[in-house]
Amino acid sequence: MLPLSLLNAAQNKPMLVELKNGETFNGHLVNCDNFMNITLREVYQTNADGDKFWKLKECYIRGSTIKYLRVPDTLLDAVKEEQNRAREAGRSARGAHVSGAGNRGGRGMLQRGRGAMRGGPIRGGRGRGRGM
């Protein structure tokens, strides 16, 4: 499980970010990139000594200044689940003409379609871009 995959899957989830200088930022992840630069919204910033506080609507944090990130425990299982679902979707898409498409269609297909779309652009942008 790549750290960046975990981070990408954490979009819209709450997290705590500690910077190298000891400042902490608590907020919801808006976006992130390959350098681990991130944008957070609804942020509570605390200075290193823990005695000053700020509330920010949005902030951008450079990846190189981050020491670590704490994310909700449930995220790991959620990401593994989604990776499995994406793998199944890929497998079934390839074997669709063999097994009954009717079976995979209907409710199952709809869910996978939505799931694939959610994960698609992110994965497609990174993975396929490099492949090309």
Binding site: L6, K67, V71, P72
Partner: peptide, 9 residues
């Protein structure tokens, strides 16, 4: 809990 630690640290 679940932690992502930067490699340079």
């Amino acid at each position: 809990g679940l932690y992502l630690v930067k490699g340079d640290q």
